[in-house]
Nucleic acid binder design. Structure first.
Length: 260
DNA sequence: CCGGATGTTCACCT
DNA sequence: GAGGTGAACATCCG
């Protein structure tokens, strides 16, 4: 999915529907429904009015009328949220711009005729009711040093693996983590629990500032490192050949010269 | 043709 | 228990 930044733009899009009444719920793909049946989702949301939207990490939440469950939307790597026939706020690099109706996995039709739909070619996202927020760590956009310290606490796992662990810290994906560590000058494969306290403070700052900067630039793929995230890429800071390794199960690029 | 990709979950190892 | 790996999802791109 989209990482935290892209989900935030989807939340802003979904927020335009606040006040609208849901006339019809479209759940054509039962595989996309997590822990609920199509009829449960339809019954729970039909006739409800959108009250508010929220986001925790990469999870988008839509709150409807009282006594109704919260709707949780996940986008996987290729999910997009579309309102009406409007062009999406942010075009995914991965997506080719095509928009096959067969990829519509979930949708809400409102009384005013507008339609909010989740299109996901690869079906990596999902829809749930009353998502369990206790399974997500603090949101990375606002993580404090103390929260980050707790997330990394005494772990032998590689730092990057912990930063990607949504239960520890919610919102960072592969690109944001690589960009953040590159900016902070920290190796992704260092043991998470081995960071000195002042390094944790700096890393928390780097996470917040990197998220904010790439947000201003327009998305997770707008990092300085992005163009060089290819085989044979070089560090944009000092020209050193980048290392490419699998860390935390994901392809990772980092500079051996300045990430220590 | 083949390998990977802004993600997550699960089974199965060590 | 903690970590790691590979598979699965389905499409596009180099």
């Amino acid at each position: 999915m989209p990482e935290l930044l892209e989900v935030e733009t989807y939340r802003e899009l979904a927020d335009r529907t606040v006040g609208r009444r849901i006339a019809t719920v479209e759940a054509p793909d039962t595989w996309f429904l997590k822990g609920v049946t199509a009829s449960q989702v339809v019954d729970a949301l039909t006739g409800a009015t959108v009250h508010a939207t929220g986001r925790r990490g990469k999870l988008l939440t839509i709150e409807v009328g009282e006594g109704r469950p919260v709707l949780g939307l996940r986008f996987g790597m290729t999910g997009r949220l579309v309102l009406d026939g409007e062009a999406p706020i942010e075009r995914l690099e991965y997506a080719s711009g095509r928009d096959d109706p067969a990829w519509d996995r979930f949708g809400l039709r409102f009384d005013d005729g507008s339609r909010l739909r989740l299109s996901d070619p690869r079906r990596l996202g999902g829809v749930e009711l009353d998502p369990d927020l206790s399974r997500l760590g603090p949101d990375a956009a606002r993580v404090s040093a103390a929260q980050l310290r707790a997330a990394l606490a005494a772990s032998a796992a590689p730092l990057k693996a912990r930063l990607l662990d949504q239960a520890r810290l919610a919102g960072l994906g592969n690109l944001l983590v690589d960009e953040t560590l590159w900016r902070a000058g920290v190796r992704p494969d260092r043991a998470a629990g081995a960071l000195a306290d002042d390094q944790v403070v700096l890393l928390a700052k780097a996470i917040r500032s990197t998220v904010a900067l790439l947000g201003r630039r327009g998305g997770s793929h707008r990092g300085d490192l992005q163009e060089q995230r290819v085989r044979g890429g070089h560090c944009p800071r000092d020209g050193e050949p980048l290392r490419r390794e699998t860390v935390g199960g994901r392809t990772t690029y980092w500079c051996p010269a300045h990430q220590l």
